[in-house]
Amino acid sequence: MTNSLYQKHIVSITDLSREELELIVATAASIKTSPRPNLLAGKVIASCFFEASTRTRLSFETAVQRLGGTIIGFADGGNTSLAKKGETLSDSIQVISSYTDAVVMRHPQEGSARMASEFSSAPVINGGDGSNQHPTQTLLDLFSIYESQGTLDGLKVAFCGDLKYGRTVHSLAQALCHFGAEFTFLAPDELSMPDYLLEDFVDAGITFKRAEDFYEVAHEADIIYMTRVQKERFDETEYKQIASRYILTAEHLKEAKPNMRILHPLPRVDEISTDVDKTPHAYYFQQAENGVYAREALLALVLNESI
């Protein structure tokens, strides 16, 4: 039977059903324990990074190579016909997709991946479109949650830091709506979860609340999903007052449940103190490693009718 992700564009996490999310997570788990070095044999994948990226680009490229595929592409849009000759993105994608079996792309403008999918003859996989979506980050987040908790259903997930602009937070919360999660939010008022998403959570029957500090969060959560409160969102005095309240330390974790794990999309600056790294709750480096397995799973499913 053909898997439902075969030849599908992966633009937004909201395009994926619960069953598809579960299939990707299960495939990632299977590839992690039993590598499949031939799943992309003979396939050429374009890696088009019109905007710089470290983890996403390198983990995609690692994933392709571990599955036996080959990569063409660029790590920075500055040297392409778009930048040098004023070619439109839609023209570039039409040409690149005619050379390859799939196009992985990151672009600084919101909507670029959806637009590209309308012009591409090969599946487009969104590696981040401006502040909008970054679906493969959500897939590796889900895989890390599943791996550390043994389930995706009915978990208590706390989102902390910048919940207004953080696209990883939005996408993960949208994905968890399929799994009956309970959300807790810890964020400065200026960076709280947008109303349109809260409305979606209500529609999905998700319960959520706000917390006052990390002690309250750590006490109840199965997963703490950390993000950084960025300096540029505030003036300097305001930032100094706010930032210290959103730094997680080992001290906050004394009452944490044994199964609780901390995730972070990285890069971390100072929002997780390094003393947390040594606790059994830190999971962000395993999570980053899981980026390769989640992307392997996705590429394998998009490019093979069945695996």
Binding site: T88, S90, H107, Q109, E110, G111, M115
Partner: peptide
């Protein structure tokens, strides 16, 4: 036009498209 100035619809040959939600 999409009010988001960084939306791709402003510099590529595609029509704007919105879904409408009443609440």
């Amino acid at each position: 036009e999409c009010p988001n100035s960084n939306c791709i619809t402003h510099n590529e040959p595609v029509q704007s498209s919105f879904t409408v939600k009443e609440r």
